[in-house]
């Protein structure tokens, strides 16, 4: 077993006395996809915000490469190689592809006060990296990001994270807003990143998508880790039931079956 990239031990977070998250322990390994499953409000977003440095945990410890760390800002987390990509790509709709690719790390030409943004290089690199992820439609870095499809924007954001040396890629519901084909494309990109040895945390409530790419799974319910298992240890039905809180889902399914038999 490889050394975990990141280890969470007993991590919890409370907001104004309410526990949003309690006692979460996870190991995130390089070259593996950890799927974080849970219904809306289960605490997935809070956990992502802790992983990416937006929130400091109230309890528990985080270790990166076996050393305890405290992220006081997203900048600390990205310095440690942690990149987060949000549902809509976290990209800037009215910026050009080249510009948005390099936001915060703009390439420059010239020197001293005459140093200027190297648009040609920015555009070239952005297009090249997009191509490497199979996005071939866009071939002009001046194109606005808002003109791309949802999947293309996800790909742009992932390409950006990988280009800037992310070791841990946190993908927050990357497939939720996508059509079938685009979702498959994003899943393929996740596998590409995994192959490069990047650790991936894939947050989703789509069990099918999770089972396609996941090596390891953790299910959150009401801010707690309800289950934790490896690929192949659970069936799709078991996971779905668990996420929805078991009984409630069975009842609902029975009711649906009733309507179906009436039809």
């Amino acid at each position: 077993m490889t050394e975990p990239l990141m280890t969470l031990t007993g991590v919890g977070k409370s907001f104004a006395g309410t526990d949003a998250l309690a006692d979460i322990s996870l190991e995130i390994e390089p070259g593996k996809v950890l799927c974080l499953l849970g219904d809306n409000g289960a605490g997935k977003s809070t956990l992502i915000k802790i992983l990416s440095g937006y929130h400091a945990p109230t309890t528990g410890t985080i270790e990166v490469d076996g050393k305890q760390v405290v992220f006081s800002s997203p900048r600390d987390a990205s310095a440690a190689g942690i990149a987060t990509v949000h549902q809509y790509g976290g990209t800037f709709p009215l910026m050009s592809v080249g510009r948005s690719f390099f936001v915060g790390a703009e390439p420059t030409k010239g020197w001293g006060p005459l140093k200027y943004f190297d648009k040609a290089t920015a555009n070239k690199v952005a297009i090249r990296e997009l191509k490497s992820l199979g996005i071939t439609r866009i071939n002009d870095g001046n194109r606005l990001v808002g003109g791309m499809s949802g999947g293309e924007r996800q790909s742009l954001a992932i390409a950006r994270a990988v280009y800037f040396g992310a070791r841990l890629l946190i993908l927050d519901e990357p497939t939720a807003a996508l059509g079938v084909k685009e979702a498959a494309h994003v899943l393929k990109i996740i596998m590409q990143a995994r192959q490069k040895g990047i650790a991936v945390v894939f947050v989703t409530h789509n069990v099918l998508h999770a089972m396609t790419v996941g090596d390891r799974f953790a299910v959150l319910i009401h801010g707690r880790k309800a289950d934790d298992f490896m690929k192949g240890e659970r069936t799709r039905e078991q996971i779905t039931d668990l996420m929805a809180g078991g009984e409630a889902m069975a009842e609902l399914e029975a009711e649906i079956a009733q309507y179906e038999s009436q039809a």
């Binding site: 997203p74 990205s78 987060t84 976290g90 990209t91 800037f92 936001v103 915060g104 790390a105």
Partner: peptide
Amino acid sequence: DSARATGI
């Protein structure tokens, strides 16, 4: 928020 996340 994205701007902040990139370290700006």
